[in-house]
């Protein structure tokens, strides 16, 4: 696939996400999706999405607000947050994406589970990259994949996140390439 000059995937931190994590994600996304990436601040105040009863943030509301702020020439936007996310029917989510849409979000909150203090940074970054790929995959219309090693596999636990690879399986990769071609054409 040839690099598309005009479009980019925007990586936007909400809160204090360390710079090296953002850069690692930006590089990995650029490499894998063959689209330019940029790290920019966009939505900052997400208190509107805070649920006082659950002490968590409603990810769907954040995505709706984020979508309104997407700058021109942005193919997709991925927000990274530290806070715990939820959708009303579930206790928590690692992230959420608009299926076939523009915006997605990943939280570091539960990705920090079961990390050994010595290796916390590289492991967390790897988990973040995996979840970022997964949620971006949804914005390209990909669904959950049965292959436990595929990045689109739905992870029920942090152990599943660690177990899966950073790659799309053969099928998901073809579907991603199809979606990329289609989106870049329009």
């Amino acid at each position: 696939m040839t690099q598309h000059d005009n479009l980019k995937i925007l990586i936007t931190p909400i809160g204090s996400i360390p710079g090296h994590q953002l850069e690692a994600i930006a590089a990995a996304v650029k490499d894998h999706f063959t689209i330019k990436t940029a790290i920019e601040n966009s939505l900052q105040d997400i208190e509107f999405a805070f649920d006082t009863e659950r002490s968590q943030y409603h990810s769907t509301s954040i995505l709706e607000a984020l979508q309104e702020l997407v700058p021109d020439n942005t193919l997709k936007v991925i927000a990274l947050v530290e806070v715990d996310l939820f959708i009303p029917i579930l206790t928590h989510v690692y992230g959420e994406a608009q299926l076939g849409g523009k915006a997605c979000i990943v939280s570091t909150h539960r990705l920090k589970e079961n990390l050994k203090s010595v290796s916390i940074e590289p492991d967390l970054t790897q988990r973040l990259i995996k979840e970022a790929f997964h949620e971006l995959g949804h914005t390209f219309g990909l669904l959950h994949c049965k292959d436990p090693t595929c990045i689109m596999h739905y992870c029920r636990s942090i152990r599943d996140v660690d177990r899966k690879s950073k790659n799309f399986c053969r099928y998901c990769d073809i579907m991603l390439q199809d979606a990329l071609k289609k989106e870049l054409k329009t």
Binding site: T60, I87, P88, I89, L90, E96, L99, Y154
Partner: peptide, 12 residues
């Protein structure tokens, strides 16, 4: 509730 459950299952 319908929307959040529906969205989750659709992605599945």
């Amino acid at each position: 509730m319908r929307e959040s459950l529906g969205g989750w299952l659709e992605r599945d």
